[in-house]
Design a protein around this nucleic acid. Structure first.
Lengths: 114, 114
DNA sequence: ACTGATACTTTGCGCTTCTACACATCGGCA
DNA sequence: TGCCGATGTGTAGAAGCGCAAAGTATCAGT
């Protein structure tokens, strides 16, 4: 079981947007899914999750509605706005480019740059 | 030419350590190499670079010596300590695990989790 | 009656990054 | 001679973000 990693600043937003993009979900479920899919590498504390959700809602990337959850309890279900969808695409592209660049650098051999 | 991406928190340290690991270099050259290798994806402002270097030095991961640079000017050359080398290995491993997890999540299809 | 899981909220701390400066030397060019 | 860009290091202020911690509430199982 791999130990968890703290999330770099800005990464949480993209992950949340992506999960929400798969269909309306409430906050608690988002954290569970992230943890589950990443096999415990990504663990989102509530103190990080809910402020992030409010942030995204204030930016107009998410909308929220109170509905009944699967367990019969009231929960806030988040959906992606069209603005959020565009943002997700851009952020995803950014991540890909960055991840490629970082991997390139970290993969450098002792020889240096040629 | 791809637009630059802002670096997520903590990523800068690993990149710096990696460049320094290839051989002693001064700060200015570190920024140049990062930008060059990443094809302008990674651009390190001086206001981010030097505080990061001091931070790493204070943590005992880097040591600094004033030497004459290639152009004949005085410059601070940074070297990796053994502690820094261990740290770099651990951080690199962390990055790999995280990048894999994030890519996994961002690569999810509309179908959701099975 | 108690514990654990579900579900949301808020506060305060600490850290990092960015923008914007400031300072200094050197080479090239008009 | 005067100016500008590149080289090279540095600081100050502001803004953002993630995390720990604590609080609130309901529900299922023991």
């Amino acid at each position: 079981m791999p130990p968890k990693s703290d999330l770099p600043q800005g990464t949480l937003d993209v992950l949340i947007l992506k999960i929400v993009a798969l269909g309306p979900v409430h906050g608690y479920a988002i954290a569970q899914r992230l943890q589950q899919i990443s096999r415990d590498v990504v663990q989102v504390p509530q103190g990080s999750l809910y402020p992030a959700l409010h942030r995204l809602e204030n930016r107009g990337l998410l909308t929220a509605d109170w509905k009944e959850s699967e367990t019969g309890r009231e929960a806030k279900f988040y959906s992606l706005t069209s603005k959020g969808r565009k943002h997700l695409e851009a952020e995803t592209e950014d991540w890909r480019r960055l991840a490629e660049a970082v991997s390139l650098i970290l993969g450098l051999a002792e020889g240096g740059v040629r």
